[in-house]
């Protein structure tokens, strides 16, 4: 049984008031996934005390590179042991010759995992975006709360006490 979610947005012009609203919502027991800050400008992460998004994008190239390197190692060693041909009097497993293939597969692994990482981290877009106001792209800062109907009054109280310029229901 799904609980129907409702949305409310508070509009601000001052960053400190937004930060106060975030604190207020937290103290009223709203979960981090229930409210969000909307801005028309990329503020530095954490400006309003909002939770920083936890992304693992940087890990994908590293994992891919390790995977590619191992694959390169197995591939070069495996093929040369399976079909040993002495070339130029050098050892069967000559590092300089193996390094080229290993480098290429390391890079390939990093690239492929990165592409996969972007797709994974993007995931599916949120179906319920909640309230919005076009004034956000003009410089207003919106704090949107998506919650159950019972909690909307609490959110409205927080917006009022933190000095919201306007409060809207969609």
């Amino acid at each position: 049984m799904f609980t129907k979610r409702k949305s409310i947005i508070g509009l601000y012009t001052d960053e400190n008031s937004v930060a106060d609203a975030m604190d207020g919502l937290k103290s009223k027991g709203f979960g981090e996934n229930e409210y969000e800050v909307l801005t028309g400008v990329p503020y530095p992460e954490g400006t309003f005390g909002e939770a920083e998004p936890h992304l693992h994008l940087h890990k994908f190239p590293l994992i891919g590179a390790v995977f590619g390197f191992c694959l390169g190692l197995v591939f070069t060693i495996g093929t040369q042991i399976a079909f040993p041909v002495v070339t130029g009097g050098k050892p069967i497993l000559a590092i300089p010759a193996m390094a080229i293939i290993m480098y290429e597969l390391t890079l390939l692994g990093a690239i492929l995992f990165t592409v996969g990482g972007i797709i994974f981290e993007s995931r599916l877009p949120k179906l319920f975006m909640g309230a919005y106001d076009p004034r956000i792209t003009e410089g207003f800062i919106g704090v949107v709360v998506n919650t159950t109907e019972d909690n909307l009054d609490n959110a409205q109280d927080v917006f009022k006490s933190s000095g919201a310029e306007d409060i809207k229901f969609p």
């Binding site: 969000e36 800050v37 909307l38 801005t39 028309g40 990329p42 503020y43 992460e45 909002e50 920083e52 998004p53 992304l55 994008l57 972007i118 981290e121 993007s122 877009p125 949120k126 975006m129 919005y132 956000i136 792209t137 919106g142």
Partner: peptide
């Protein structure tokens, strides 16, 4: 698309 200017929108935007 589904751009509303949320913190996660901006964060992913920069990395993408």
């Amino acid at each position: 698309g589904r751009w509303w200017g949320s913190s996660s929108n901006w964060y992913m935007h920069k990395h993408r």
